[in-house]
Nucleic acid binder design. Structure first.
Lengths: 171, 171
DNA sequence: TATGAAATTCCCTAAAC
DNA sequence: GTTTAGGGAATTTCATA
């Protein structure tokens, strides 16, 4: 049984925000920014990593990578059996071209984002992953023209009511 | 004028793949894996970072973050003027809840992925970003039930023809 | 020009407080 | 949580192919 979920304090929120934006900074820099010693920062980050909460990855600038093609695919399954979903999940997770996959509420069951080395590659992958699947009712592919924003940042705070702009009148 | 685009060699491909998967490894580990000295690896990574090709970020495990809500929004603009697009881009980039945004080919102009602290927050953000925009023709919001796969990995190779499974008969 | 090995510096890490 | 001390990794230097 996993240990109880540790609540975040203000230091955690600020550190996690900083690290999501840039994991390159030194412990001293981070500590100076949030008002903590490097050791304290180190201990916290160690906890994040060992608990599996955070991992560090390299993110490439897609603008510097010619011949990279992004595409989105929305998918609807024929039958909603758990087995069919699990099989699809495994297939998508195993495919390196599948960058992201989300199950959705509503008329479409999944949104899939593909990252390939070109249009022909995209076509290959779509046919292999989706066209060949007999349990797929329908899918629609849309090519990505441009990337306006790209990241995986998540909010760590629980819920600040009235968090809209300009509501918090402090400082 | 920027310098000429540097082509990747086999070492670069393997290093970039490793770093996209896990940027935590030491230079020695990376070097042992790809068959290079720690110095050589360090120099390459330094180049990746200084050229802006790669940055390191922390990625949080969404499963450990209760009260995080993901949603997708597809958007169609009323008029296709460059000014309208630029304005929308700026607004989306500035919004912390907008995790990703792609411009699309086809009937929808944009796909937006939102990461908020709850349903109410999602609604707030959608209304602020999309409902208030008079140049928006139409948008559709879909909530994310589950995350099947999540990453930003990009392929670095140019194009290997016949890259389908089992075609390459070497080794 | 890019490499590997050695030398140096700096940062991360784990004490002790 | 901070300060301190130590080991280890990142970075630079240098000789080399």
């Amino acid at each position: 049984m996993p240990t109880a979920p540790p609540p975040f304090d203000e230091f955690d929120h600020r550190l996690l925000a900083l690290l999501q934006a840039d994991a390159q900074r030194t412990l001293t820099e981070l500590g100076d920014t949030v008002g903590l010693s490097a050791s304290a920062v180190q201990r916290r980050i160690k906890r994040y990593r060992e608990s599996g909460l955070m991992r560090m990855v390299g993110v490439l600038d897609i603008a510097q990578l010619a011949n990279v093609t992004l595409a989105t695919v929305v998918v609807a399954l024929e039958r909603e059996s758990a087995r069919q979903h699990a099989a699809l999940h495994a297939r998508l997770r195993a495919a390196p071209e599948v960058q992201q996959c989300y199950s959705l509420a509503g008329d479409w069951d999944y949104l899939v984002i593909l990252a390939t080395t070109g249009l022909a590659h995209t076509r290959e992958v779509v046919e292999r992953l989706f066209d060949a699947d007999k349990n797929l009712k329908r899918y629609e592919t849309r090519l990505v023209f441009d990337v306006v924003k790209r990241g995986l940042d998540l909010p760590t705070r629980r819920r600040s009511r009235g968090a809209k702009d300009g509501v918090h009148g402090k400082k």
